[in-house]
């Protein structure tokens, strides 16, 4: 069957043209370097390739010491958030053709978290603030079957369920760069996910936690987080809703 379909296809698949893209990567090896340094790499790429493919090519064919995180490589695990041409993006979701290839492509680690090596940062502070908002269902009742929820109630927090904890939002936030104590957008997004969940009973606790000096009120509505989110979560909107909930004292 499938071969027949292939035989009937009118033309040979087009060859996707390749070109040389220049990547300038901010390297840092704590065992050798005192300071991060920029290094150039030329790679043969297609427009349909992703930045992650370019990094793979460099690591596999040119310089095996290049260090970066990636797991699923398909925009689900959230491992490869990095700053591409000055903006936080997932390397596995950024196509070369969407970048200006007449100029070099700048790739560096996300900002505001301690740099460990090349494109890897220490994510501990990020996950600490995620844990601090108690991102799990808090419920006293033990129903015999599932906990019921209407579609409307589910839709209330649908946007914030999409978070993959890649830290693109938190590390794009100017407040977080200068004040590492700030919970950051990702933690507030995950608090939002439970605060507005009709099945959850812990919203008072979470609103209290986020009413802190380093909580939602640190948000200066720069919208960098919304722009950076690879899942398209309206992060600043979610933070504004949590702010309003804190003022009301209930979701």
């Amino acid at each position: 069957m499938s071969t027949a379909v292939l035989d009937n296809s009118p033309s040979v698949p087009e060859v996707i043209p390749t070109f040389t893209a220049t990547l300038i990567i901010r390297r840092f090896d704590p065992e050798v370097d005192d300071e991060p340094r920029w290094q150039d790499f030329d790679v043969e790429m297609r427009g349909t390739d992703r930045i992650l493919d370019a990094l793979h090519k460099i690591k596999w064919e040119q310089d095996g010491s290049l260090t970066f995180r990636r797991s699923c490589a398909h925009g689900v695990c959230g491992s490869d958030a990095m700053r591409i041409n000055g903006r936080n993006r997932l390397a596995c979701k950024t196509l070369i053709k969407d970048l200006d290839i007449s100029k070099p492509i700048y790739v560096e680690a996300i900002k505001g978290l301690p740099l460990e090596k090349d494109l890897i940062v220490n994510m501990d502070p990020f996950f600490e603030s995620f844990k601090a908002v108690q991102p799990f269902l808090i419920a006293s009742s033990k129903p015999d079957k599932e906990r019921l929820q209407s579609p409307v109630e589910r839709a209330r927090f649908d946007d914030t369920t999409k978070c993959i904890l890649c830290a693109a939002c938190t590390s794009s936030c100017p407040v977080f760069w200068t004040d590492g104590q700030y919970f950051g957008p990702a933690a507030i997004v995950n608090a939002h996910r439970f605060i507005f969940d009709s099945r959850d009973e812990g919203s008072e606790v979470r609103l209290d936690i986020l009413n802190d000096q380093e909580g939602v009120w640190r948000c200066r509505t720069t919208f960098n987080c919304t722009e950076a989110c690879p899942r398209g979560i309206q992060v600043t909107q979610a933070i504004a809703e949590v702010k309003a909930a804190v003022l009301r004292g209930k979701p």
Binding site: P36, R83, G86, L115, F223, N224, E227
Partner: peptide
């Protein structure tokens, strides 16, 4: 000590960041 994270690129925020 010198700054730990010497100059990366300037973060390219959009209208929201520059208004801030």
């Amino acid at each position: 000590s010198a700054p730990r994270a010497p100059r990366g690129t300037l973060y390219r925020g959009r209208e929201g960041m520059w208004s801030w």
